[in-house]
């Protein structure tokens, strides 16, 4: 069954797709969960991947950005956990968990283990640590629901290094890692404490700079124009404009 199922699904999708392609390409906003996979069929590369995905996420709710992504594959058939820095206080993570990983977990911890556990993001502070999974300075757990595959994480700490695990937690608190992310360092949000004896900072210079504002660039023009007229011009660093209806 395990082997047959992907092919069956592929065949059904092929039929579906040939149908979809006949529609004018205007259904992007209302596209349903399966549509974007359908579009993939012409590229058999991904056949395997999404078919294996099917078993564990067909019942999932579409993520919030689904409609925007419509025709793109949401899964690439690869276990991955990507961590990105948004600013000194926030990180963003997205991940993909394949059915294989899921099966491995079930094989190791028993058929009931998946339903007996819930997903947890474990955020490790590994500043100045050569992280081996056990030597983090500290960690925070974020209990998330089954349906999501991305998350904004408020770490609230500039200039620290982080790494996160996606894992499953048993009711007794046992945590099993499924995916581990890359490591990231949050940017500083203030002057560095490290001073250079040869190039000692000139305090008066810094005082003359005083307070300053972030974000003086084309986005600001867009905002100012919007404020001024209730009209939002399209601002890239560029011209191009449209009126808000």
């Amino acid at each position: 069954m395990n082997v047959l199922f992907p092919w069956l699904f592929g065949a059904i999708m092929l039929i579906l797709v040939s149908g979809i392609f006949l529609w004018p390409l205007i259904q992007s906003r209302t596209a349903k969960k399966n549509d974007h996979r359908g579009f993939l069929i012409p590229a058999p590369l991904f056949n395997e991947e999404f078919s294996s995905e099917l078993s564990n996420d067909i019942a999932l709710k579409p993520p919030k950005n689904q409609s925007l992504e419509a025709e793109l594959p949401h899964h690439y058939g690869m276990d991955r956990m990507i961590l990105m820095v948004r600013d000194p206080h926030w990180l963003f993570a997205y991940w993909e968990l394949t059915a294989t990983k899921n099966e491995q977990f079930t094989n190791n911890y028993g058929p009931e283990a998946w339903s007996a556990t819930h997903p947890v993001l474990r955020v490790y502070d590994i500043t100045d640590v050569d992280f081996n999974g056990k030597n983090a300075i500290g960690y925070t757990d974020i209990h998330v629901s089954e349906n999501i595959d991305n998350w904004y994480i408020q770490v609230g700490e500039p200039d620290r290094t982080f790494c996160i695990d996606l894992g499953r937690m048993f009711s007794d608190g046992r945590f099993i890692t499924l995916l581990r992310s890359n490591t990231v360092t949050t940017p500083r949000a203030s002057l560095s404490d490290r001073l250079d004896e040869e190039w000692m900072w000139i305090e008066g210079l810094y005082r003359s700079i005083g307070r300053f504002q972030y974000g003086i660039s084309s986005p600001m023009i867009v905002e100012e124009h919007a404020l001024r007229k209730g009209v939002v011009p399209l601002g890239i660093s560029s011209p191009g404009f449209s009126r808000k209806d």
């Binding site: 948004r86 600013d87 926030w90 940017p187 003086i216």
Partner: peptide, 25 residues
């Protein structure tokens, strides 16, 4: 220091609810 000239000074303009989905791809 990691930074940009976008709103709030870091990467949020290019990594927010409206566009975060693109990075997966």
């Amino acid at each position: 220091c990691s930074s940009s000239w976008g709103n709030k000074g870091y990467h949020e303009v290019w990594l927010c609810g409206a566009n975060d989905w693109i990075y997966r791809h």
